[in-house]
Nucleic acid binder design. Structure first.
Length: 310
RNA sequence: GCCGAGGUAGCUCAGUGGUAGAGCGCUGCCCUGAAAAGGCAGGCGUGGCAAGUUCGAUUCUUGCCCUCGGCA
């Protein structure tokens, strides 16, 4: 602990793969420390998607104040920068009120953007992107990649020639900022400069995660996801909202493209893939203190976290 | 019981007289304004079982077992 000058305020993070129990644990922990929850989740922000996004229910939100859940209209886009701006604002204001923020989420990028920062850059330019994607599908993304090599060789090295999305974003940044992504990265600043960041990760053996995912998908159907998707499909969903796991699978079933079981199975597979990607995102981050929920009870994990933040 | 088709990767299936391949799954990785998104890499195998022909059989032959369809 730093002595002398005022101690940095603590911000707690709870991360881990989907279906591991982050939401529940965070609510219990927050109740005990009188903290408030900020959701680092690209889907739980949306309204009318509670089942799909597995957002906390009314009783959970009643027990602990939540931010950035169930509030955004699904016709609106959401993205890391928006999240980062809102979340850091909320954290600052909680800090002023002496309330400990508990950031909960499985979106690795969102967590990193908040903790380590985003480099300053302009927002997306849809017109430019549209043109670039058209170019890529006509001449191949490798051709765009060569363009990127010429202006930002370091970025080109890090981005695969097939990864059109990232190539185009790097070009877009250079076009709007007049400086390269590599250059801009140097001025990245995040929450960690101002706060004492404590990241706790929940995990468990892979087979158990997969089993829980299957059970959870089944429960989502029992809870009425199909009805939720039906209602959503009447709206003009934003591209981001549409990407929620289960939407395209169930919408496909509703359109008669596949049977119910096939839709369910596809949703399970895609959710497994998602969990896998989350794990490989978080794994290399040495700041994360991991707890295996198959070996330790929820209560014990909370006790340990409480001890560590004392 | 007879006729036909077929048994090759976890699944669906290609292919070949010189010990095997694709898609999906699975595993690992990358990731900065779409991230529940996007991208990359890796074959993980008792070729149903047994015998025969052959320098060599997953491939050809025979027998057996099993599956599917049709006829009874």
């Amino acid at each position: 602990m730093p002595s002398g000058s005022a101690r940095k305020k603590i911000v707690i993070f709870i991360v881990g793969p989907t279906a591991i129990g982050k939401t529940r644990l965070a609510i219990k922990l927050s109740k005990r420390i009188k903290g408030e929850i900020i959701s680092a989740d690209s889907m739980q922000v949306y309204k009318y998607m509670r089942i799909l996004s597995q957002a906390p229910d009314a009783s959970g939100k009643k027990a602990v104040r939540h931010y950035l859940t169930g509030s955004l209209d699904p016709r609106k886009e959401y993205n890391v920068a928006l999240f980062r701006d809102k979340a850091s604002e909320i954290i600052d204001s909680l800090g002023r009120r002496g309330i400990m923020p508990v950031v909960v989420g499985g979106s690795g990028l969102y967590v990193r953007a908040l903790v380590d920062g985003l480099f300053p850059s302009e927002a997306a330019d849809p017109g430019f992107r549209k043109k670039m994607y058209a170019f890529a599908s006509r001449y191949g993304s490798a051709k765009l990649h060569r363009k990127l090599s010429a202006i930002d060789p370091r970025a080109a090295e890090l981005i695969h020639p097939n990864d059109a999305r990232r190539i185009i974003r790097a070009l877009e940044i250079h076009r709007s900022a007049g400086r390269t992504m590599t250059e801009l990265k140097k001025s990245t600043r995040g929450l960690k400069d101002k706060y004492d960041i404590r990241i706790f990760g929940l995990t468990r053996p892979r087979a158990e995660i997969y089993y829980d995912i299957e059970k959870r998908v089944d429960r989502m159907f029992d809870a009425g996801v199909i009805g939720e998707v039906k209602k959503l499909s009447g709206k003009r969903l934003s591209r981001t909202a549409k990407a929620v796991l289960g939407y395209k699978e169930i919408a496909g079933y509703l359109k008669g493209k596949c049977g119910l079981e096939a839709a369910k199975d596809e949703m399970k597979v895609n959710t497994r893939h998602f969990a896998k990607r989350q794990l490989s995102w978080f794994r290399p981050d040495k700041r994360i203190r991991w707890f295996d929920v198959s070996k330790m009870s929820e209560k014990k994990i909370i006790d340990r976290i409480m001890k560590e933040i004392k």
